[in-house]
Nucleic acid binder design. Structure first.
Length: 152
DNA sequence: GCCAACGTTGGC
DNA sequence: GCCAACGTTGGC
């Protein structure tokens, strides 16, 4: 089983939103970065665990845990003219962008803040805390996973 | 293929 | 709102 971290802006979609979706499940659409796309398409497997990170908000940090419930399939929002994530170069017979479905596992008892994560030498190498990192999907090692949840 | 211009991300 | 960092675009 693999571990991941996925960023979301809580004003767009938060761990609370996921908790209250039907079946506590949602498709993770809108990823438009090739490196992130490749991980979604090629590496994410059903049952993989995901840290849900809230970005671009008052208290950036890890807010909850989700699980991959459906492996990659074409992101239909890429084909929808006028959609925020529309990509005219993507075609249904040659899809460019993919998404997985994630299921709610639980909220953390508290937000583990980015500042706190950056402060921990144990998390050196975690993509999230590397300078200038902008990936919205990134792998997490089992060691980092355990350590982060130990901070809760 | 180079690289300047531009757009986006996202912390602060 | 600022701006550093990075990705993408497109002229050449």
């Amino acid at each position: 089983m693999n571990y991941w971290l996925m960023k979301t802006e809580p004003t767009e979609f938060s761990i609370d939103d996921l908790e209250h979706r039907p079946n506590q499940t949602e498709s993770w659409d809108g990823v438009r970065n090739y490196q992130a796309r490749n991980m979604i398409r090629d590496q994410m497997k059903t049952g993989d665990q995901v840290l849900i990170y809230h970005s671009n908000c008052d208290h950036p940090g890890i807010a909850g845990i989700a699980v991959i419930v459906r492996e990659a399939y074409p992101d239909p929002t890429a084909f929808q003219s006028g959609h925020k994530h529309y990509d005219p170069t993507a075609k249904p017979d040659a899809p460019r962008w993919f998404m997985v479905d994630v299921g709610f596992v639980r909220k953390l008892r508290r937000i583990i803040t980015l500042a706190e994560l950056k402060d921990r030498p144990e998390l050196e190498g975690l993509a999230l805390v590397r300078r200038g990192n902008r990936l919205s999907v990134m792998p997490v090692t089992p060691q980092h996973w355990e350590f982060i949840l130990g901070l809760e």
